[in-house]
Each structure stands twice: as structure tokens, then as C-alpha cells.
Simulated assay, not measured.
Amino acid sequence: MVLSLDDLVALSGAHTIGFACYAAFQNRIHNFNTTHNVDPTLCPNFASKLQGKCLLHNTVKTAGAPMDPYSATFDNNYHKLVLHGKSLFSSDQAQLGFPKTKALVNKYASSKQAFWQAFTNSIAKLSSINGGQEIRKNCRIVN
């Protein structure tokens, strides 16, 4: 429990890079609950695009979507997407449900520098949890 709420919002910004498999977010775009087929916090156009790519009975295990349309660039676009209902994971969208985390999402969406500074501090804090051995350039390979 070394990480604060501030750290978790900053670290979630790592979702600006990468790819999410369909199985990780299918519950938001198909059969969300008894009242809604689609998670109502999703932007309707975004949800429709996801549904078109990730069909209900999709069996391709590699099907999915980029976490951010500019997923090759580490920037604050993820936070902007959260504000517009265009995040893939419900845990990302849930950040808008609490005043403190919503304020942080707004702050990072408004300032790339503020996000980078917070992320740098939080990733260093995260690395110290297990002895601070290294921050990997590629998660699959030891530096």
C-alpha cells in the first residue's frame, strides 16, 4: 500500500501505449447489464466502432484494439480519452466517478508536463516496492 491514489491515476496513464485484447473489454460493449447492452459511460460512437471490430461471438484470441489511437507515443492522450468516454477498461473510466481522481485526470489531460512529472515520480515509487531493481525499457526483457 505504498502507492497513493495520485500514483494510481498517474500510472494508469501508461495505457496511452499498447493494445488490449477483446476479452479484456468485451463486457463493456456487449451485454453490459440487464438495462444496457453497452456501458453507458462509453461514448456511443466509440462503442459502435468497437462493436464493429469485436463481434459478440469473436473467437480470435488476438482480436482487440489499441489502448490509444496514437499508441506508439507516450503522451497524455489517454487522460483525454478517459474524459471523452473513450477508454477501453471500466477501471479507467471509473476514475471520473470520484472528485479527487477526476480532478487528476483533468489535470493530466490539460498538461503533458504535469502528467510526465507525476508518472516519473510514481513509476520510481512503484519500482522501489520490490527493491528498486530496475525499470525495464521492454517489459519482457531484463535490461
Results as ranks from 00 to 15, higher is better:
residue 107 K to H: 06
residue 14 A to G: 11
residue 143 N to V: 14
residue 133 Q to I: 05
residue 55 L to D: 04
residue 129 I to Y: 07
residue 75 D to Y: 12
residue 7 D to L: 05
residue 94 A to K: 15
residue 65 A to R: 04
residue 124 A to M: 09
residue 112 K to G: 05
residue 28 R to C: 08
residue 94 A to N: 15
residue 95 Q to F: 15
residue 115 F to K: 01
residue 85 G to Q: 08
residue 121 N to F: 07
residue 49 K to Y: 09
residue 137 K to L: 14
residue 79 H to K: 07
residue 50 L to T: 08
residue 54 C to R: 05
residue 107 K to Y: 03
residue 28 R to K: 05
residue 80 K to H: 06
residue 114 A to D: 08
residue 138 N to I: 09
residue 141 I to H: 00
residue 37 N to A: 02
residue 113 Q to W: 04
residue 22 Y to W: 09
residue 72 A to N: 11
residue 109 A to K: 04
residue 83 L to E: 04
residue 137 K to N: 10
residue 59 T to H: 09
residue 126 L to N: 00
residue 105 V to F: 03
residue 127 S to V: 04
residue 50 L to K: 05
residue 138 N to M: 12
residue 101 T to V: 05
residue 126 L to G: 00
residue 109 A to G: 01
residue 121 N to P: 04
residue 79 H to E: 03
residue 45 N to H: 13
residue 6 D to T: 15
residue 135 I to A: 04
residue 81 L to C: 05
residue 109 A to F: 01
residue 22 Y to E: 12
residue 36 H to E: 07
residue 80 K to W: 04
residue 51 Q to R: 15
residue 23 A to C: 06
residue 80 K to C: 03
residue 57 H to R: 11
residue 61 K to I: 14
residue 55 L to Y: 02
residue 37 N to Y: 10
residue 72 A to R: 10
residue 80 K to Q: 05
residue 63 A to Y: 09
residue 136 R to Y: 11
residue 87 S to Q: 10
residue 65 A to V: 07
residue 109 A to D: 02
residue 35 T to M: 13
residue 103 A to R: 01
residue 135 I to H: 03
residue 60 V to M: 09
residue 134 E to Q: 10
residue 99 P to M: 09
residue 71 S to W: 13
residue 123 I to N: 05
residue 123 I to M: 11
residue 35 T to L: 15
residue 67 M to D: 02
residue 46 F to P: 14
residue 28 R to D: 07
residue 95 Q to H: 15
residue 33 N to L: 08
residue 141 I to S: 02
residue 39 D to E: 07
residue 106 N to M: 10
residue 126 L to Y: 06
residue 128 S to F: 03
residue 129 I to P: 03
residue 45 N to D: 15
residue 96 L to M: 12
residue 28 R to I: 07
residue 114 A to P: 09
residue 47 A to P: 08
residue 19 F to I: 00
residue 114 A to E: 06
residue 48 S to C: 14
residue 122 S to L: 07
residue 71 S to V: 12
residue 128 S to C: 03
residue 3 L to K: 02
residue 108 Y to S: 02
residue 72 A to H: 13
residue 118 A to I: 05
residue 40 P to C: 04
residue 57 H to T: 00
residue 116 W to H: 10
residue 99 P to A: 14
residue 131 G to D: 05
residue 74 F to S: 08
residue 35 T to H: 13
residue 110 S to R: 07
residue 119 F to C: 06
residue 87 S to Y: 07
residue 85 G to A: 04
residue 38 V to K: 01
residue 123 I to V: 13
residue 56 L to W: 07
residue 103 A to S: 07
residue 143 N to F: 13
residue 125 K to P: 02
residue 58 N to D: 14
residue 129 I to G: 04
residue 60 V to E: 13
residue 15 H to G: 10
residue 143 N to I: 12
residue 103 A to L: 02
residue 38 V to Y: 06
residue 113 Q to G: 05
residue 137 K to E: 10
residue 110 S to M: 03
residue 25 F to C: 08
residue 89 F to N: 11
residue 10 A to L: 04
residue 50 L to P: 11
residue 82 V to W: 01
residue 134 E to W: 09
residue 32 F to A: 02
residue 30 H to S: 00
residue 136 R to S: 09
residue 75 D to E: 01
residue 35 T to R: 10
residue 143 N to G: 05
residue 5 L to V: 15
residue 11 L to K: 06
residue 78 Y to E: 01
residue 60 V to A: 12
residue 122 S to P: 02
residue 13 G to I: 06
residue 114 A to N: 06
residue 139 C to D: 09
residue 78 Y to T: 08
residue 19 F to S: 01
residue 122 S to I: 06
residue 68 D to L: 12
residue 36 H to A: 01
residue 21 C to T: 08
residue 5 L to K: 11
